[in-house]
Simulated assay, not measured.
Amino acid sequence: MPWPERSTMSIRREFVLLAGQPESNVRELCRRYGVSPRTGYKWLDRYREQGDTGLQDRSRRPLSSPGRSDPELEQAVVQLHHRYP
């Protein structure tokens, strides 16, 4: 008999609902679900603020790239590269 397939969202929702029960131990739930307490509390905070949408994966892309060159400079380098291959 195969294992039932469960989505990441359903697992996180189950965690949050169990953690919301009276007398629940969040750290014990974290151990049971194999996540760090920091992650467990992050899920709880996001769920309180945003509901189910707060449990979705978020992009890990940085908000800014401070080391990136200006677009004009990039264009000038590309033009020089094409001129002098």
Results as ranks from 00 to 15, higher is better:
Trp3Lys: 12
Tyr33Thr: 04
Met1Thr: 03
Met9Cys: 01
Ser69Leu: 15
Glu23Thr: 07
Gly34Leu: 03
Tyr47Leu: 00
Ser65Leu: 11
Met1Phe: 05
Ser10Glu: 15
Val77Lys: 14
Leu63Asn: 09
Pro71Tyr: 06
Glu23Phe: 15
Glu49Leu: 12
Arg12Leu: 01
Leu44Ser: 09
Leu18Cys: 09
Val78Lys: 15
Arg46Cys: 07
Leu80Phe: 14
Leu44Val: 10
Pro2Glu: 09
Arg68Gln: 14
Trp43Pro: 00
Gly54Leu: 02
Leu17Arg: 13
Thr53Phe: 08
Tyr84Asp: 05
Glu23Ile: 04
Ser10His: 09
Leu55Pro: 03
Gln56Thr: 09
Trp3Met: 08
Arg83Asn: 08
Cys30Glu: 01
Ser24Trp: 06
Val26Glu: 00
Val16Ser: 00
Asp45Arg: 15
Pro2Tyr: 05
Ile11Pro: 02
Phe15Cys: 00
Leu17Thr: 10
Thr8Val: 13
Arg61Gly: 05
Glu72Cys: 13
Arg60Trp: 10
Arg38Gly: 07
Arg68Leu: 11
Trp3Arg: 12
Arg48Ile: 04
Ile11Trp: 09
Leu55Cys: 03
Phe15His: 00
Ser10Met: 09
Arg46Thr: 07
Pro62Lys: 01
Leu17Pro: 00
Leu73Met: 13
His82Met: 06
Ser7Glu: 04
Pro2Phe: 06
Tyr33Met: 07
Leu29Gln: 03
Val77Gly: 06
Gly51Lys: 04
Val35Cys: 12
Gly20Arg: 12
Gly51Tyr: 05
Ser69Asp: 14
Thr53His: 11
Gly54Ala: 03
Ala19Trp: 04
Glu49Asn: 11
Arg13Ala: 11
Tyr41Phe: 15
Arg12Gln: 02
Glu49Val: 07
Pro62Asn: 01
Tyr41Leu: 08
Leu73Trp: 13
Leu29Asn: 03
Met1Ser: 10
Arg60Cys: 10
Val26Ser: 02
Leu55Ile: 06
Arg32Trp: 06
Cys30Phe: 01
Gly51Trp: 02
Cys30Trp: 01
Arg32Val: 05
Gln75Phe: 14
Pro4Trp: 03
Pro85Met: 10
Phe15Ser: 00
Arg13Glu: 07
Leu44Gly: 08
Arg83Pro: 00
Pro85Gln: 14
Leu80Val: 08
Met9Asn: 03
Asp57Gly: 08
Ile11Gln: 11
Tyr41Ser: 03
Pro85Asn: 12
Met1Ile: 01
Gln21Arg: 15
Glu72Met: 15
Leu80Tyr: 13
Ala76Met: 10
Met1Ala: 10
Gln56Phe: 11
Arg46Ala: 12
Cys30Tyr: 01
Arg13Lys: 11
Tyr41Trp: 15
Ser69Tyr: 13
Met1Lys: 06
Pro71Val: 11
Arg68Thr: 08
Pro66Ser: 02
Met9Trp: 03
Gln50His: 13
Pro22Ile: 05
Glu74Asn: 14
Arg32His: 11
Gly51Ile: 03
Phe15Val: 01
Thr8Ile: 12
Leu63Met: 05
Ser24Thr: 11
His81Arg: 14
Glu72Asn: 14
Glu49Gln: 15
Tyr33Leu: 06
Gln21Thr: 05
Tyr41Ala: 04
Tyr84Asn: 10
Arg13Pro: 00
Arg12Lys: 07
Glu14Ile: 01
Thr8Ala: 12
Arg32Glu: 12
Gly34Thr: 05
Pro37Ala: 04
